[in-house]
Write a protein that binds this DNA or RNA. Structure first.
Length: 303
RNA sequence: GCGUCGGUCGGAUAGCGGCUAUUCCAGGAGACUGUAAAUCUCCCGCCCAAUGGGCAUCGGUGGUUCGAGUCCACCCCGGCGCA
């Protein structure tokens, strides 16, 4: 059976979360018509899955949820891993559950790669192999690339020879399957693999407006104790993992280690979040190209 | 005032007489098939009849030299030390 889902995507600070709640409550008036919707929200966010990362990830508060169930938030400890594969599995299950209850699954978030993975599928289906990954940390990047070329020339041609992470992942798949499966096999056109009927809402505010929203949100986050939150997370997971969590966690972590001044915090965070937003916009373009979804330039008053 | 260290492309930084002035950050354009807020690539003085070529450029002015960001002199500016 073809499940219907609503996907809300957009860059950071674009106001996705509150829009999702409105959609779930059926109060969206963007088209002028009152849509009687009763939905549950599935977060599509690679960082909000972690407990304790609240301020830095701009996690929605209980009040802001307004009684709408939210899924895939606070489901892991920060030191645990969570992958696109985990997400696809969890989201697939949740979509079934929510649909079975007669409700509309609403997927909202800024991890656009996860949307892509859910809708277009992840052909490999090979779990991470920590032991193998550790072993593959040893060889030089050149060597890793040579191995991929030797064992799967087709995939090698697609990969960046200098991107170790991707090379290691490719070798992980090759070790398990012999070769990396093709992205879009002839018998599985784009959009067919997921079997969902997708309605898109893409919120993509103009540059200047988004930058203002990012800065406003950052000042708010600092006022709400961002630095203390990062300090707690750092104590729990250590510096390496902290940096991996990215953005606020990485930058504030540098400050906590006295590698940067307090004055440089806000400007640097602002710059990094804008860089992030740009990467997200690149994904939106890709999603648009693949799904003919249209962007909505308007946005709700707050997020 | 004397001494001293320094003034390099938005910021920081390398450069110790020779051919394309280094690296990091910021900025811009992208990639992305299981770490994705991660990871990675390219561009980033000016101009052009541009898969190549031309002209600039290292605080200023002069000088030494076949050749100067690099050496010398003087000047301007900043830090430190001594007065």
């Amino acid at each position: 059976m073809v499940r219907q889902i609503l996907c809300i995507a957009g860059p950071t600070a674009s106001g996705k979360s509150s829009r999702a709640v409105e959609e779930a409550l059926g109060r969206s008036t963007s088209t002028g018509e009152a849509l009687a919707r009763d939905g549950e929200i599935i977060s599509v966010d690679s960082r909000q899955v972690y407990r304790g990362l609240d301020i830095g990830t701009e996690k929605i508060s209980a009040e802001e949820m307004r009684g709408v169930p939210h899924h895939l938030i606070d489901i892991r400890e920060p030191e645990e891993s969570y992958s696109a594969g985990d997400f696809v599995q969890d989201a697939t299950r949740l979509i079934e559950d929510i649909s079975a209850r007669g409700k509309l699954p609403i997927l909202v978030g800024g991890t656009h790669f996860y949307f892509n993975a859910l809708i277009n599928g992840l052909p490999a289906r090979v779990d991470a192999d920590p032991a193998l990954r550790k072993e593959l940390e040893q060889p030089s990047t050149e060597e890793l690339y040579a191995r991929v070329v030797e064992r799967d020339a087709r995939r090698a041609a697609e990969l960046d020879p200098l991107n170790r992470r991707r090379l290691i992942r490719a070798l992980e798949i090759i070790t398990s399957l012999g070769a990396v499966p093709q992205r879009y096999p002839k018998d599985c056109p784009i959009g067919q693999s997921c079997g969902y009927q997708v309605e898109w809402i893409v919120i993509d505010p103009p540059r200047e407006e988004l930058q203002e929203r990012i800065d406003a949100r950052l000042e708010q986050a600092l006022g709400r104790g961002l630095v203390d939150e990062v300090r707690r997370v750092r104590e729990a997971v250590g510096d390496t993992r902290l940096s991996e969590l990215g953005l606020e966690y990485k930058i504030v972590g540098e400050f906590l280690r006295n590698e940067r001044t307090e004055d440089s915090l806000l400007p640097m965070l602002s710059a990094k979040l804008w860089q992030y937003a740009r990467r997200q916009k690149a994904w939106l373009r890709k999603l648009r190209d693949e799904h003919t979804i249209s962007a909505e330039l308007s946005h709700p008053d707050r997020s």
